[in-house]
């Protein structure tokens, strides 16, 4: 079943009078439950592609459907709600809220959704337990290691049971042992819960684990989006 469908997606940026063509007509389809890596050199358009799929950016032209809905036709509020319910984000720099504890950070998406406090807390604790951080729930982000922070970010991304998790270079700031654990964790969640993972990476260990590799270069998909 198709989760994401992109047709002739283009994205241009304007730097003063210079136009930068970040994506030059991308066609891509991703099914539910896939574990997909977007791979390519710096400046190839990986992050731009993930931003568009994550609905936090808009394409200059082309059509993007997520769960059958055309993203362009959604209002900002509807798109934001859609993001909250259907998409989880794992950022390269973790992006945890510094004044909130690990548990509060994980509870945040559910609180934005309006879930009751007791359910929110129960679900967040369960997710933190799954990522092996049940002993660190009260710690603020600056009291956690890089790997622990990334695991909090993963728990936060999964707390709403999204259909899609987008991860931008999820192992870039981690040592190899922590990276390995994070990759295993994501793979495990993908297999157990059929959560679709799409991530950009340069990390060969992560690339070895993926089912599908989408290779981007100069704003175009080179391999038709189906290499492994």
């Amino acid at each position: 079943m198709e989760l994401i469908e992109m047709e002739e997606i283009k994205k241009d940026y304007f730097l003063g009078e210079t136009v930068v063509h970040a994506l030059r007509g991308v066609d891509l389809t991703i099914d539910k439950g896939e574990f997909v890596a977007i791979w390519g050199p710096s400046g190839s358009g990986k992050t731009t592609l993930l931003n568009l799929i994550g609905t936090i950016d808009e394409a200059s032209s082309g059509q993007l459907f997520i769960k059958g809905e055309e993203v362009k036709k959604l209002s900002d509020d509807r798109r934001t709600e859609f993001r909250n319910r259907s998409i989880g984000f794992i950022f390269q720099g973790f992006n945890l809220i510094p004044v909130l504890s690990a548990l509060e950070n994980v509870m945040l998406p559910l609180e934005i959704m309006g879930t009751s406090f007791s359910n929110t807390r129960k679900t967040a604790l369960k997710r933190l337990d799954e990522v092996g951080l049940s002993d660190f729930v009260k710690h603020l982000p600056d009291k956690l290691s890089g790997g622990q922070r990334q695991r909090v970010a993963i728990a936060r991304a999964l707390v709403t049971n999204p259909s899609l998790v987008i991860a931008d270079e999820p192992t870039a700031n981690l040592d190899s042992e922590t990276s390995h654990k994070i990759i295993e964790l994501m793979r495990d969640l993908n297999e157990k819960e059929e959560t679709t993972f799409i991530f950009s990476t340069h990390d060969q260990r992560l690339l070895d684990q993926v089912e599908r590799l989408v290779r981007l270069e100069d704003g175009r998909i080179l391999n038709g989006g189906s290499e492994k």
């Binding site: 994550g54 936090i56 900002d76 509020d77 934001t80 709600e81 993001r83 909250n84 319910r85 984000f89 950022f91 992006n95 809220i97 510094p98 945040l108 998406p109 934005i112 959704m113 936060r156």
Partner: peptide, 11 residues
């Protein structure tokens, strides 16, 4: 932080 909150679904 604002970007993160917006990405997480805060209107």
């Amino acid at each position: 932080e604002i970007g993160t909150l917006r990405a997480l679904g805060l209107k």
